[in-house]
Each structure stands twice: as C-alpha cells, then as structure tokens.
Design a protein around this nucleic acid. Structure first.
Length: 458
RNA sequence: GUGGAUGUAGCUCAGCUGGUUAGAGUAUCGGUUUGUGGUUCCGAGGGUCGUGGGUUCGAGUCCCAUCUUCCACCCCA
C-alpha cells in the first residue's frame, strides 16, 4: 500500500495549528463585525459559467473544474469527439458544468443578484471560507486556502475606501504585525495614463508592464513595454511615472500635471486625495499608507480604488488585496450597483506570524485540570468531574488505570496546567491535592478552596 | 503553463569513487522496584532508501520516467 499523502498544495491542520488559525479568524471576524459587516456563506462549488471570464484568461485556467459524471459525462465525451476545432476552454465547458470557487467576491456578486429582493442595500457582508486555485504551489501559495472577505455593495461613497484602510490597520495591528504597508492606487488613474498615451485599448499591456517596476526596474519595464508593442511616444509619457518621489501630496500634485489631459485620470486622483486626506486626519495605529501608481492587480473587474497590503522584510507576497468594482453584478443582470471590498489572506498572514514568531501562546485552550486515575471505581468521580465542569473548568479524568508517571507525562505533553490527585480517601475527606504543573508546587485543599485556586490561576 | 533544485526511520540529517544484515540525533513505546511530569540511565519498535522501470554479478549510490516539496518566471492570498 502506498504511503498516505494529500494532493499538492493542500495541508492537514493539527490541533495547535487550528488554534493559531482560529486566532487569526477571530481577530479578523471581530473587526468585521465592529465595522458593521454581516456573515454569509456560499457553496464550495459554483456553476462553471458563473466563474469563467471574471478573472482574465490566466484566471480561467486556474479554476478547478469538476468533471461531469455518469450519463452526462458519456454524452459530453461523445460531443467532444464529434465536434471539430475545439479549444481547451471549449472542451472544458462541455465536460464540466461546475467548478470550485476561485475567490469569494464573484460568488458574492452572484449571491447579491440572486437574493436582491431580500437584501437591504447598501449590503455589508463578510465571508470566511476556503477557495481553490489550480496553481503551482510555492511558499505562501497553496491550492486550497482561506480568504476572509468584507464587501459593501450598493454604495458609491468613498467612505468605504477610508474604512477599509482603517480595517486593514485595525486587524493587522491587533495581530501585532509590524511594518505593514497599505498600497493604494485607482484604476481610473491607470485608465488616464492609457488615455494620454493614446493607447487606451492597451491598458492591460501597459499596467502589467509597469506593475513590475519595483521588481525588475525602469529599464526592463521599458523593454517590456516595447516588446508589448507600445510606441515610443507613449513610453516617453509613461516614463516620468517611474521616478515619482516625495510626499504623498507632492506625488499627487505631479500626477495631476501628468494627467492634466485626462478627465478620468484626474477623477482618479481626486478620489485618492479625498481618501488619503481623510485617513491622514483620523490617523492609523501602525500601518503606513502609500500611493503606488504601478499597482495594477490582475483582476480585471476593478474600476476604482485598488488595495494591496504587504509586510516589509518578510519573504511572503501580499497578504491582503481589494478594490472597487462598479459593475460586477452587471454581469449577472443587476446594473449600476457599485461594490467595494477587501480580502485578508489568512494562510499568508499565518505564514507571516510564524516567520516573525508573533503567535501568542494559547494557554488553557483545552483541558485545564487533569484528575488522576488510581484505579478506583470511576463512577464515584463523576459528580466531582461534573461539579468542576459546571464551575467552568475544563476537566478531564484520566480514563485508564496506568502508572501515575504516564498520567503526568500525558498532562505535560498536553500542557495541562493543573493535576488533581484524587482517590477514594480524598473524596471521603473532601481534601484534594492540587498540583501546579508550572511551578511543581502542590497543596491540600477542600473542594471550594480548590475551585477558587483554579479560577484565580486560569 | 515554462525553467531549475530536491526526496534516506514520525521529525532533522549522515551514508566516501556502486559491494555483504542502511546509521545518528530527536520523537514514540517500555523499564529504572508498583501514588507524581518536564533532567539522568537502560532497552525496544519503526525504513521494500518518494514511486515505477532500466544498466550491472551487485544500486540508497548510475540512467530514464513519474510524483512531492522548494526556487525563479507567469500570476496571485
């Protein structure tokens, strides 16, 4: 028999890992709730047609498709055999009707359109569920991972952009992550750049090229622009973007000059300015906000603000993302509804906390008191155990009659803070010997004294 | 999807130019005289050397394929 193993890019989670992960979830969740978001869940799988075309061509290839089964599959296979000139994408659509969700935003858009009559707009929802991507795994990149999304749909107010920046700051501060940089851009600015270069249709080529600026440098970006067929005149207009520096305000002022010929570009600047001023006024706890013209992100449904959050000095890519999408629900038939949202990458945050050694110790997460087994009749201990549990103490009784040494080792391995030595005599005399596993000290106590001691120490 | 590296006990690794029953540390289990752990000492179990082929008298060690993990690209949380 082959060694048991799991598919690549997936992971098992042991008890200690679940504790750590729940710590992240709980932190994110409580902030979501504080900002007024309500929880929903959607199925792991969606209809394939719901997902395709929303993430760009690359994204479509990364969607896990679910093969049809039984008679449907037979029929589909026959159709594939009989049809000529099929592309890979077309074959997939014949053979597969369903797929695992790729993110939480598109299923949410589908949800909103489907339940529009039951929803009071603006609708603020949060959702913490796994997503799947048929990617090639690497560090911090999995094929099954959790996203924690908060979105507002049905409101154009820039208030949300401000609040999302605060939300990033609050959550990541509560997790004690240092050197957090929230990068912000606006799709309208990118459109403006494309417009003034006279290459409006080439916006994707331009943005994906300049997106690499901090990674490969200005020279290589120019090379890539040339390679992508962008004209010299256009490149001359784009070049000044590479060495923008100074304060936020100075950069924005310079951007205004560069984009003076583009109405949409100036609109983007205006929006950003409003958001930045508000954020500056209110102040952030630990994160730093940065304007980054090169920030593009592949998701082609963004229309306004674009967010990306990174941690400086850590070998893991961005830990959060988000932005405004003005017409995502339009694809599902509900027009003119603007949405804006963010996503926390729980697994990457986990990796960051692990790398920086920032997880707290989870004391008392499980058993707090172990009662030893001296081989007495278990039944007479059940009232004692019940009383302890009723008093709010996580209690377990060692189930088997084994050497005390082994019971102590068990308590040690499970990090149980207290051990109670209780035999028939102790019950009879209402005197129990309580041992503090940290200090090794043990004292003889009555039941009430014992409860008080335990409550005071856990 | 493209290119590169990797894979030996649960974990971290050793194993020289192919040569007899594959080692260490750590973890696990048992014992150290039967009601006390995290430290000592003794002992045990555990590996078809990722998997499948091939070369050879003989392969953990060479060749091919395949899978895993990691790195770069692509993309992204």
């Amino acid at each position: 028999m082959a060694k048991p193993s799991i598919p690549k890019g997936t992971r098992d989670f042991s008890p200690s890992e679940i504790l750590k992960r729940n710590y992240i979830f709980d932190t994110i969740k409580s902030s979501f709730i504080r900002f007024g978001f309500l929880p929903i869940e959607t199925p792991s799988m969606e209809k394939l047609e719901t997902l395709t075309g929303k993430y760009g061509e690359e994204g479509d290839n990364l969607i896990f498709k679910i093969l049809n089964r039984g008679a449907k599959l037979d029929k589909a296979v026959r159709k594939v055999e009989e049809t000529e000139n099929l592309t890979q994408g077309k074959i997939e659509h014949i053979l597969c009707a369903e797929a695992l969700r790729y993110d939480l935003t598109v299923p949410f858009a589908r949800y909103v359109v489907q339940h529009q009559n039951d929803i009071a707009f603006p609708f603020k929802r949060f959702q913490i569920q796994p997503v799947w991507r048929a990617d090639r795994p690497q560090k911090g990149r999995y094929r099954e991972f959790y996203q924690c999304d908060a979105d507002v749909i049905g409101s154009n107010a820039l208030l949300h952009e401000i609040e999302f920046i605060q939300l990033f700051d609050e959550v990541l501060s509560n997790l004690h992550i240092p050197k957090v940089v929230i990068k912000v851009n606006n799709r309208k600015i990118l459109s403006g750049i494309a417009e003034i270069t006279g290459e409006s249709e080439r916006i994707i080529d331009i943005t994906t090229a300049i997106d690499k600026l901090d990674k490969i440098g200005a020279e290589k970006v120019v090379e890539e622009l040339i390679q992508r067929g962008i004209g010299d005149d256009a490149i001359d207009i784009i070049k000044p973007l590479f060495d923008l520096n100074g304060s936020l305000q100075e950069i924005l002022t310079e951007m205004k000059t560069i984009l003076s010929g583009s109405e949409i570009g100036l609109k983007g600047i205006e929006e950003l300015e409003f958001v930045f001023n508000a954020v500056e006024k209110i102040g952030l706890r630990t994160a730093r906000v940065e304007f980054d013209v090169t920030l593009a992100r592949g998701l082609n449904y963004y229309t306004g603000a674009i967010f990306e959050v990174k941690v400086e000095g850590v070998s893991i890519g961005s830990i959060c993302g988000g932005g405004r999408y003005d017409d995502l629900t339009g694809i599902f038939g509900l027009k003119n509804i603007s949405g804006v949202g963010i996503s926390f990458g729980a697994d990457r945050i986990y990796d960051v906390l692990e790398e920086l050694n920032l997880f707290p110790t989870f004391k008392n997460a499980s058993t707090q008191l172990l009662i030893t087994n001296f081989g007495d009749d278990v039944v007479q201990f059940l009232p004692l155990i019940k009383q302890l549990r009723d008093a709010g103490i996580n209690t377990e009784y060692y189930p088997d009659k084994v050497k005390l040494q082994k019971q102590m080792k068990y308590a040690d391995a499970k990090a149980i803070p207290f051990v109670l030595f209780a035999g028939e005599d102790e019950i009879k005399n209402n005197t129990y010997r309580l041992k503090n596993m940290d200090t090794g000290a043990q004292t003889d106590l009555s039941f009430d004294e014992m409860i008080n001691t335990l409550k005071a120490n856990i």
